[in-house]
Computed example of a mutant assay.
Amino acid sequence: MWRDVVLVAVGGAIGTAARAGLTLALGDDLGPALVPLINVVGAFAIGVVFGFRARMPESSRAQRAQLFLGTGVLGGFTTYSALAVESADLAQLWWGAATVLVGTAAAWAGVVLGRGRLRSR
């Protein structure tokens, strides 16, 4: 159990650092669009991880990889809490609603891709 907690914590630190690096590098250029963009990209990537994981046989190694990448790295990378704060201003509320809708669609597309359902039959 503690190994899993450490995997999520280390992955979360990596994902949070990646998000912070993007914010520092692109924050001035993308402004308020950066948080929704990060969340949609992260939602898609989480969908890919979980879709790919669904194709894998059950194993503790696959479970740990999902915890590290999906819950840890990508959970730390996405920042729905920052989105909520930005959306608290009613003028920005549409950002929040649009990001949740687009993020959900991106996660679904990622799951489909991760499960390999886009291949022609």
Rank of each mutant, 00 (worst) to 15 (best):
Gln63Met: 11
Ala98Met: 10
Phe44Gln: 05
Val112Ile: 14
Arg19Thr: 11
Leu67Arg: 14
Val111Ile: 14
Ile46Phe: 04
Leu7Pro: 01
Phe44Arg: 00
Gln66His: 07
Arg55Tyr: 00
Asp28Glu: 13
Val73Ile: 14
Pro57Leu: 00
Ser59Tyr: 09
Thr99Asp: 10
Gly21Ser: 14
Ala33Asp: 02
Gly103Phe: 05
Leu113Ile: 08
Ala91Pro: 02
Val41Asp: 00
Val10Ser: 04
Ile38His: 03
Ala97Glu: 07
Gly31Asn: 12
Val102Lys: 05
Ser87Pro: 12
Leu22Arg: 05
Leu93Lys: 00
Thr71Ser: 01
Gly27Leu: 04
Ser60Thr: 15
Ala107Leu: 10
Val10Asp: 00
Ala109Tyr: 00
Ala20Gly: 09
Leu113Gln: 10
Leu118Tyr: 02
Trp94Tyr: 01
Ile14Val: 14
Ser59Thr: 15
Ala105Leu: 13
Gly51Arg: 05
Gly21Leu: 13
Ala18Leu: 15
Gly31Tyr: 10
Arg53Glu: 03
Ala20Tyr: 14
Trp94Ala: 08
Val35His: 03
Ala33Met: 11
Ile46Ser: 02
Ala25Ser: 14
Gly116Gln: 12
Gly27Ser: 06
Trp2Ile: 11
Leu22Glu: 00
Asp4Cys: 08
Gly96Arg: 10
Val35Lys: 02
Leu118Ser: 03
Gly12Ile: 05
Leu113His: 09
Val100Met: 13
Asp4Ser: 15
Ala82Asn: 09
Ala62Leu: 02
Val111Gly: 06
Ala9Asp: 03
Ala20Cys: 05
Arg3Val: 12
Gly11Met: 06
Ala9Val: 08
Arg55His: 03
Leu93Gly: 01
Val73Ser: 09
Ala97Asp: 03
Ser60His: 14
Val100Pro: 04
Val111Thr: 10
Gln63Pro: 04
Asn39Asp: 07
Leu7Cys: 13
Arg3Asp: 01
Gly116Leu: 10
Asp29Arg: 15
Thr99Val: 01
Ser59Asp: 03
Phe52Tyr: 12
Val73Glu: 06
Met1Gln: 07
Ala98Tyr: 00
Arg55Asn: 12
Arg61Asn: 01
Arg119Glu: 12
Thr23Leu: 02
Thr79Met: 12
Val111His: 05
Gly27Arg: 06
Asp89Gln: 10
Val111Asn: 03
Ala106Lys: 01
Gly31Thr: 07
Gly51Asn: 04
Val10Gln: 02
Gly11Lys: 08
Val10Cys: 08
Gly15Ala: 10
Asp29His: 11
Leu69Tyr: 01
Ser87His: 06
Gly47Phe: 10
Leu34Asn: 09
Leu83Asn: 08
Val85Thr: 14
Thr78His: 07
Gly11Arg: 08
Ala25Arg: 11
Val73Leu: 08
